[in-house]
Design a protein around this nucleic acid. Sequence first.
DNA 1: ATGGGCGAAAATGTATCCAATTACAACTTT
DNA 2: AAAGTTGTAATTGGATACATTTTCGCCCAT
Lengths: 213, 213
Amino acid sequence: MASSAPSRVVETLRDEILNGTLAPGARLRQEDIALRFNASRQPVRDALRQLEGDGLVNLVANSGAWVSKLSESECFEAYQMREKLEPLLISRSIPNLKPAQIQRLTELVSEIERATDLEQFLRLDREFHLLSYAGAAPGMLREFVERIWNTTQHYRRAFAKLSGFATSEVTHMEHKLILDGIVRNDSAQAERALEAHIRRTRVTLSEHKEIFN
Amino acid sequence: MASSAPSRVVETLRDEILNGTLAPGARLRQEDIALRFNASRQPVRDALRQLEGDGLVNLVANSGAWVSKLSESECFEAYQMREKLEPLLISRSIPNLKPAQIQRLTELVSEIERATDLEQFLRLDREFHLLSYAGAAPGMLREFVERIWNTTQHYRRAFAKLSGFATSEVTHMEHKLILDGIVRNDSAQAERALEAHIRRTRVTLSEHKEIFN
DNA sequence: ATGGGCGAAAATGTATCCAATTACAACTTT
DNA sequence: AAAGTTGTAATTGGATACATTTTCGCCCAT
C-alpha cells in the first residue's frame, strides 16, 4: 500500500536535505515538486508545511520556500541544546533497550571505527545515536532531539569533510564509554559520557567557523 | 491591513487553546472553522498544519484534527525540558534586556503578588517569563521554550485551579530571586533561581496526578 | 441479545481554476 | 547617468468541485 502523496514528498525531500542533495538555501518551487511527484500543488504545500514544522524548510508568505540555513550562532545554540537534552533522553531509553538493540549498538561502534568513507561514517554515527534512543517513549523530548539532529546534519557533514571526517581516537573512546554505560545498564555513566561527547564536539566545531560561508 | 487568512486562524485558535476555550481533546473540523472565518478549507488546513508544528494540535491523516493532550508522563517530561532549556535562554537574554523591559519585569513581580483571580495570575506569570526572554535572539532555543509553555499552559491552569492558584510565598520569593539576577545583570544567579523555580514546580505538579483525568 | 459486516453520510484529501502578491525589468524622469 | 516608477511575467494563495477514506448507524445472521 502506497502512503499518501504528502508523506511521499515529505520523506523524499527530508532524505535529500539530510543526505546533502538539497543544500541549505536551495529554493523549493511548488510547481516543480508537484510535477516531479505527479501530484497537484496542494499536497506539496502540505508537505512543505510539515517540513517547516521539522525545521528543515523555511516558508515565506507570498514568496517561496527554501531549505533551512543555520548561522554559526544558531548551530552553536543547537549543540548547546543537544548537550542538555540528549543525556536526558538516553537515560530514559536505556532501561527499555532490548538485547538485540544493544547487540546492534555494539556492532555499530566497531563499524564506525572501521568506517572508510565520509557518508558511511555519517550514516553509522547517526544510526548509533538514534538507536540508542529507541527505548525512550515517543514524545516531545525525542521529537526535539531528532529535530536538532536533522537541522544540524548538513553542518555535521561539512565539518567531517573539513577534518578528513576525523574519526579520531577520542571519538571512538567516547562512543565506547557511552556503549559501556548502556551495556552495564548504568544510565548515569551513559549520560555523563554522552554529555562530554557532545560538549567536545561543540567546542571543536566552534573552531571551524569557515563551515558557515 | 488584515493579515492572511491562515494567520488569522492560527492566532485565534492558538488564543482559544491557551485561554482554555478549546480544551485538550476537542475536535477541530475543517469545514466548521472555514465557515467561521469566511474562508475555504485550504487556508484552514494550512493553519492546522502550523498549529501542529507548534505542538498545539494533533493531525491524523484521513481522520481529523484534535487539540493536543498531554499524558501525565509527557507533562512531566515537558517540565524536565523546561528545567534544562529555560535557564540557558534567560542567560542569553539578560545582557540584551532594555531598561524599560527590566522596569516592566519589576512591576510584574509586584502585580503577580497582588493578583486576585486565577486568569489574571496566569496571564501575568506568563508575561513575566516571556518578557524575561525577550532579549534572546530568535532561534530554536526560544522556539522550543515557547512551545513547552504553550503545550503545558492548560495543565498550568488546571493545577493553579486545584491549589487555589496557590501563589504561595515560595513562588514570590523565587520570582524575586530571578528578578534580582536580572536587575543585577547576574546571569548565573538568574539561571540558578529559574532552574530551582521550575524544578520545584515540577515536583509539586507531580503530586497532583488527578489533573490528567 | 450480541457480534459482525454492509451501506450511507460525513469528513478529509486532491485537482483544477482563478485571484493576489511579488520580483524583475524596462522605461521615464530628473 | 542614476534613481524612481510602472508594467509584465512568474509564483504563491485561495476557492470550488470532485474523489477517497473513514465512521457510524443499521440490518442480518448466529
